[in-house]
């Protein structure tokens, strides 16, 4: 199953709370893990890095090694790293860093440490927070409510393709493309073929999750010259399986749905703001009153919703 959601607030707002509500309303679709891709106030230079350390006890050493790699690419910490205060063995880390000279090369080198500390997202504004447990669990542990930003994605996972661990949860960052993330409801059946092709082109995948493919595949198509909508449309004929996924970057949120029209998606909103979710009852957490709901129920559909830049 799985449940997905997107929110564009139309202005700087508490998108953290909105997305927690959207996911809490869909907790019955999967509570193996829950995750959020949150777009905070965009930076002109430098990046926000989100990472997971696998051993809380050795975090100091692991983080020092990661910071060395960051300094190797001309960047430095702009503030002290913050970590969650939970008792789990794994630990979530947030870093604010200055401009990296080559994000692709840096990412490859930083990934050499991924058995100890794994990068979850890099962006001017993107922050991916994901962990095992329900929306309430993850929101409580990581303080998702109160996150101020422009837009974001949410995901409730019923694990099918890979392990129930924080790093195999959604959203997935489109490694190494800054600010690109996806959430996915469905099963991709030809992901290993497409992933192998992308690996030969130098991309790196961190999990055995089918969904990790989508973000990189779309970003690679856009890099090859397609616009976002063309890439979404092409994914319907080239990615096989039943799927509805949402993909976000700093400018917009888009979706694509397969030819079999199995996985639902609804949207509600107007005037530059929108709430999107697998189930209508979830968007009603944002818009309590009866209103016009768009049901994307048909086969082979795409759409994009712009993020108002003036509002940021």
């Amino acid at each position: 199953m799985c449940g997905i959601a997107a929110r564009i607030a139309g202005r700087m707002a508490d998108i953290g709370t909105d997305l927690v509500e959207l996911m809490d309303a869909q907790v019955h679709r999967g509570a193996d893990s829950t995750g959020f891709a949150l777009y905070g106030p965009p930076r002109r230079t430098g990046f926000v890095v989100r990472a997971v350390g696998f051993n809380r006890a050795s975090l100091g050493v692991d983080l020092d090694d990661l910071i060395k790699v960051i300094r190797g690419y001309g960047a430095d910490l702009e503030s002290d790293p913050t970590v969650d205060e939970a008792s789990s063995a794994h630990v979530s880390v947030r870093l604010e860093i200055s401009e990296l000279s080559d994000i692709e090369k840096w990412s490859r080198e930083a990934d050499e440490l991924s058995h100890r500390i794994e990068i979850q997202s890099v962006g001017r504004s993107l922050e991916i927070i994901k962990d095992t447990g329900s929306a309430a669990d993850v929101a409580g542990k990581h303080g998702v409510r109160g996150f101020i930003g422009t837009h974001g994605l949410g995901h409730a996972r019923l694990a099918t393709e890979s392990s129930v661990v924080p790093t195999a949860s959604h959203p997935f960052w489109a490694r190494p493309f800054p600010d690109v993330a996806i959430v996915h409801n469905g099963q991709i059946t030809n992901y290993f073929l497409l992933r192998d092709r992308l690996r030969r082109d130098g991309y790196r995948f961190m999990t055995e999750n089918d969904s990790e493919l989508i973000a990189v595949w779309i970003s690679d198509r856009i890099k090859a010259g397609l616009d976002k909508l063309q890439a979404l449309e092409q994914s319907i004929s080239e990615i096989d399986g039943v799927f509805t996924y949402l993909i976000s970057d700093s400018d917009s949120i888009g979706f694509a749905k397969d030819r079999w029209a199995i996985k639902p998606l609804v949207a509600m909103g107007d005037g530059g703001e929108v709430a999107v979710a697998t189930e209508e009852q979830a968007v009603r957490r944002i818009y309590a009153a009866e209103g016009d709901v768009v049901n994307y129920d048909g086969p082979a559909l795409t759409n994009t919703w712009p993020v108002q830049k003036a509002a940021a």
Binding site: E279, E280, Q281, R284, A288, V293
Partner: peptide
Amino acid sequence: TVTDTKSRH
């Protein structure tokens, strides 16, 4: 008569 249905299942 059922009110405030909120698209619930």
